[in-house]
Amino acid sequence: MNASCTICVAVAASAIIAATTVAVPAIAADDPAVLRQDMMKSVGAATGMSAAMVKGEAPFDARVAHLALRVMNASANGFGALFPEGSETGAETEAKAEIWSDRAGFDAAVAKFRDDTAAVLAPPPADLDAFKAAFGQVTQNCGSCHEKYRVKK
């Protein structure tokens, strides 16, 4: 394993630890707005590492790809629960009011992210071409959900 890949694994490992930690509110800060922001940072780290492989800036490693998709899937699984009533403000949240006024639409968007990340893990991509397709499928969720439910401050 070369240096860039070692870094990739280290980043992914810390990302998945972060994702796992924040998914258990009992042992973390209990402000859902903070938890969901941390979770999105984990997804961002996994996405950044994946994009480096897709763009050819880092060599493809099937284990790293698997880990990145697992981080995304783990985040998607717990994400919807971190928007309870009462967490509309605070912690400089960028959550848009539509999350609560259009709850069914938001839940459907999160479910799609969960389903897409689960689909590309069965089985996990074995080569770069398969990973590129998986990356395309899961990351189109980012923009489409942010388009409706996130406001930039």
């Binding site: 999105m40 780290a45 996405t47 923009g143 942010h146």
Partner: peptide
């Protein structure tokens, strides 16, 4: 690796 939202999407 934040993702653009709103009308920028």
């Amino acid at each position: 690796f934040d993702s653009f939202g709103g009308t920028m999407a």
